[in-house]
Write a protein that binds this DNA or RNA. Sequence first.
DNA 1: GCGGGCAATGTTATCGTTATCAGTCTTCCG
DNA 2: CGGAAGACTGATAACGATAACATTGCCCGC
Lengths: 367, 367
Amino acid sequence: MSTLNDVARLAGVSTMTVSRVINDSGHTSPVTRARVNKAIAELGYMPNALARQLRSRRTKTIALVLTDITNPFFTTLARGVEDAARTRGYAVMFCNTDESELEELEYVRVLIQRRVDGILLVPATSSSGSLQLLHDHGLPVVVIDRRAHSWQVDQIRTDSEAGAYSLVRHLLDLGHRRIAVLAGPQNVSTSADRVAGYHRAMDEQHLPPESQQVIFGEYNEASGFEMIQRVLASSPRPTALFATNNFIAFGAMRALHAAGIRTPEDMSIAVFDDLPAGWTFDPFLTVVSQPAYEIGRQAAELMLGRLASDQPIDPRTVVLPSALIVRRSTAPPPPENAASSWEPTAATPREAPSLALQTSGPTENHA
Amino acid sequence: MSTLNDVARLAGVSTMTVSRVINDSGHTSPVTRARVNKAIAELGYMPNALARQLRSRRTKTIALVLTDITNPFFTTLARGVEDAARTRGYAVMFCNTDESELEELEYVRVLIQRRVDGILLVPATSSSGSLQLLHDHGLPVVVIDRRAHSWQVDQIRTDSEAGAYSLVRHLLDLGHRRIAVLAGPQNVSTSADRVAGYHRAMDEQHLPPESQQVIFGEYNEASGFEMIQRVLASSPRPTALFATNNFIAFGAMRALHAAGIRTPEDMSIAVFDDLPAGWTFDPFLTVVSQPAYEIGRQAAELMLGRLASDQPIDPRTVVLPSALIVRRSTAPPPPENAASSWEPTAATPREAPSLALQTSGPTENHA
DNA sequence: GCGGGCAATGTTATCGTTATCAGTCTTCCG
DNA sequence: CGGAAGACTGATAACGATAACATTGCCCGC
């Protein structure tokens, strides 16, 4: 692969002159420029970005460290980051931590070594180690989606508390009084905030503690499935569920389906996080939807603005609103006296045959 | 940020010795190693990957250039690539081309400049320009998902023709005789192959040309919606549809829903591409499912194997099978004499109220 | 006792750019 | 016509690491 030197020799000028031409940094005569450009074209010369980055101490690269890109919320967010970064000439590196603090730290180390200009981070639980390390190395950080405890970094997230409040309010307005929460990990701020929003809505109604049921699990389908078992074992049973993310909701729905409990006739379910529009021809779940693309875009903007500025910028926190979308998974509760008579015999799954295919069929082997 | 030199000075050794220690390349005494490691810890030294890469002429980075990461097929595939790359110490850069040959070429240029070790490419239409450029610069390429014409590169994809054949065979076995294809772009190989599989199945039955209807569009929801209008305008109308990707299917379902045509009672629909398991609690569509994660993983393996080998490797082509999953969107056709009497008045959407919310609700603003 | 072999360490050049400073050549004005 | 300002160009030294070769010191066997 040809270098600046090759171009310089072919054009009969010095390397600096070629450098000036390709960087368009002035002080070159039109004649020289033409000669150099001709040589560049002739050789198919491509500047070596590594050498440039080493010399100029900027890589024009940012990293997006998140928990799992296959979660559609993060996929859309990632797209927002990439689009914003690209228009400013930045490249993006994506890293999946799978909610592991160790993986996260490992990635942060690699990214520091690769000298990325900044990191957009969805912290795995309380990842103070990574933030400390990044701080020590003077790398700018934007914390996305989750709250960072007491660190002086930019932050951007949805208002989880308010979103949860509006979702639970909606259930209360329908007449529900016993509402259970299927929460994510207790030490993840989004989960905690959504539970807080739930408590605020419930407390406003002066509902007794026994109306409130909070179950902590994980943000995935299997956990949603499990948590339902505990709901069904409780007595009196809740008439509505609040799932704090979409994967939990899917697991819950599958479990209810399997138990012969109909939604929303027997039990309502309201969910934090929507699926992207167009992925379902007939959306069913009542949700609070987050502006995922916009979060990603603005996170990148926060970072790029900071990188472009030549003076220090005070840490900023952006909290975006969510939107309640009422669909068909929520309805008024069944009459109170019928509450104890739910039996699998009375309710068969609406469309039985498909279920086995979903769970056992040869689908994605996402090991 | 401290350098090798700083460490060397602090440890009282030469830079080469430090280099030997951090690379574990032998010829260092335990005493020296300890001293160096102490100095490294003291300074919080992080090797500069840029300098290493410049000197060693390898970046340990590969790129995945695809059309749109928000397509769940590609998201899962990307995850497979990342997981495989990471276990071998490689980083991955993701790039979205949005099916634009120009964007693709732009990205390829950037990636060459950044000296990535290799590129995994989902070519946008017939992107011979990018492949030529990559070839000229001696960069190894793995073409994913789509066929590359006549270029000597590794390739990996699903057997689209066979998958389409089995899907159409399934429709024929149910008794359908007039089946329309909602295809993607004519010049994208997956689309062409799926249409070819359709033709093979239809021709086997010696069906007259007028039974066959192929409509070319794009791989997105809007296009699926549009294509249905042409299906509905045709006479005699087909009794079944074959959508060549999931987005097309979603658009088609929305359009059928809007037109008051029931699935599968009035019209069956069979689809290429599934949604990841666990994203829907009650999957409805009969599909052919691709092993997306595995495609990504193996694509990365092909590349990394080539990069690790010190001798040339002949181009390889891997074609993975797809899996037919029969669900509820396909059924035998309605009685023939009723075929011409379909009128919106006779069929109201099963669950009407939700539709407006889907299309006009404040969901992701994915601009 | 001496040369060969080997482990440990150091020196120098280099990867491909750009920053910096130092020329050279016009040009223009007094 | 001389000199200074300005435009253009080049030489040299980094950026931070590693490759390649050189050196030192020690052990060993004959």
